[in-house]
């Protein structure tokens, strides 16, 4: 009898230990260096070429790959250097490790994890003296934020996003009072959810701002307004820190 109980104890404590390891490893689930890759070059620095600051849905692949470049001390691209990509739990890279090509660049396709929020990905190259690394930030949108993104695309970004595309010309330059971009964390982070709700529902004049911002109370439901706010919060740069209860941590 005692023996059975003992195995039970052992099993659950082993499980707990394993969970703890997974939880700890989750913070930086590193990828094993690929044995097949034989680096022929070593760099001193690593810089981002493209693919940072993308926004995708949770659990899905980002639209564009992340491309980084390995440079030596003089800033010249280094071909054949090993680059390893790491990220929080749930993020996957294809490939997770690569050698830089002839122009010193390494490319990986990123699939975001299942949790909404900001993902800090790291590209590491073993340098001559010490490893060089680069942080790349990507954003994953959950259900609510993605609904907000779709609504924003329909109702908001034509004015709030100064960038034009071939399919869609921005109205930003045509406006006398310039609207704030949704990424403008310096301004939007200071506004409470209540203020943002008010300005979306009742228009600019509700906060003594420009009437160029129309009221959407009758057009969007409260859930849709909340989704829009959640989306702007997810995009904010610098990141939005909710001003809630501050908990005392031991």
């Amino acid at each position: 009898m005692m023996k059975r109980v003992n195995t039970e104890v052992l099993r659950s404590s082993a499980c707990l230990a394993l969970l703890a390891v997974v939880a700890l490893a989750g913070c930086k689930s590193g990828t094993q260096p690929n044995a097949a890759l034989k680096p022929t070059g070593t760099g001193a620095a690593i810089v981002e070429t493209s693919g940072g600051h993308q926004v995708g849905a949770t659990g899905t692949a980002l639209k564009d790959p992340v491309v980084v470049q390995v440079n030596d001390e003089q800033g010249t691209a280094v071909p054949g250097a090993l680059v390893q990509f790491q990220g929080p739990a749930g993020v996957s890279f294809e490939p997770a490790a690569a050698l830089t090509d002839t122009s010193g660049q390494a490319t990986t396709a990123v699939t975001l994890g299942g949790i909404a929020g900001r993902y800090q990905l790291t590209a590491v190259t073993p340098g001559k003296a010490k490893p060089a690394s680069l942080d790349v930030i990507e954003t994953a949108l959950g259900y609510q934020q993605r609904l907000g993104a779709i609504l924003a695309d329909k109702y908001c970004t034509r004015c709030h996003d100064p960038e034009s595309s071939a399919e869609r010309v921005s109205n930003y330059d045509n406006l006398e009072t310039k609207p704030h971009a949704f990424t403008d964390g310096n301004t939007l982070n200071k506004m409470s959810d209540a203020d943002l709700t008010a300005i979306i529902q009742y228009g600019g004049p509700a906060l003594k701002r420009s009437a160029l911002m129309p009221p959407y109370e009758k057009t969007l439901s409260l859930a849709e307004v909340r989704a829009l706010i959640a989306y702007t919060r997810a995009l904010a740069d610098p990141p939005y820190q909710p001003a809630g209860t501050v908990y005392a941590h031991k």
Partner: peptide, 23 residues
Amino acid sequence: LPTRYIEAGCGQCHQNAMAGTPQ
């Protein structure tokens, strides 16, 4: 179900196209 296919859950009842389920 992996998170990337979670909208499949919605699709069991909702046969219509909803704003929140682009995939």
